[in-house]
Amino acid sequence: MSAVPLQRVSYAEQPSVREYELKAVYLYNFLQFVQWPESRRTVSKDGAMVIGIVGESPFGEALADLQADVRRSGMKPVRIIQYGPYQDHMDFGECHLLFVSQTEKGNFRRIIARLKDSPVLTVADTENFISAGGMINLVQSGGKIRWTINRAASDRAGLRLSAQLLTIAVRIVEGP
């Protein structure tokens, strides 16, 4: 034997897709359960809302599928912007929701600072996102996915989260 290397040979095709399919649907749902300030309510002519992804997207094909399925079933359309790895000049102003990928863990604070409390709902699925000032963090518990909410951050940005989002949340923090 030999203690062989952990450096993982692991690549997954299916399992991660499932997880991120569900997360993609959550993102879409969040758009319906958050009220944006007047200034951001007017959206493009087709009424599409915008989800941005910064960092390496973990969603695989899930967001493209989401878009297609939303279109097919005549639901409120959504536009996806893939920003790629974070760079300081990036402007996220166009987004209603910004998903910050795990690969940007080192940049959480910089990204939050860049947004300067503008009305963009920030979402991630990484441990210290909330403490870095992010608004919603998706967490796993018992094989299910729920979220924690940083209400102070969403309040500062002028976003109003619906009661349902708040009641289902596993935890609500009031800071920083």
Binding site: S10, Y11, S16, R18, L22, V25, A62, L66, A68, G143
Partner: peptide, 29 residues
């Protein structure tokens, strides 16, 4: 795609009850 379409018809309360297959670590496609 079928799965995705059916997820879209569910409410939040239903979604949070779904079991998901979670990929461990940072698996890549």
């Amino acid at each position: 795609t079928v799965a995705m379409a059916s997820l879209l018809t569910k409410g939040l309360a239903e979604l949070i009850e779904l079991d998901v297959a979670i990929a461990t670590g940072t698996l890549k496609p």
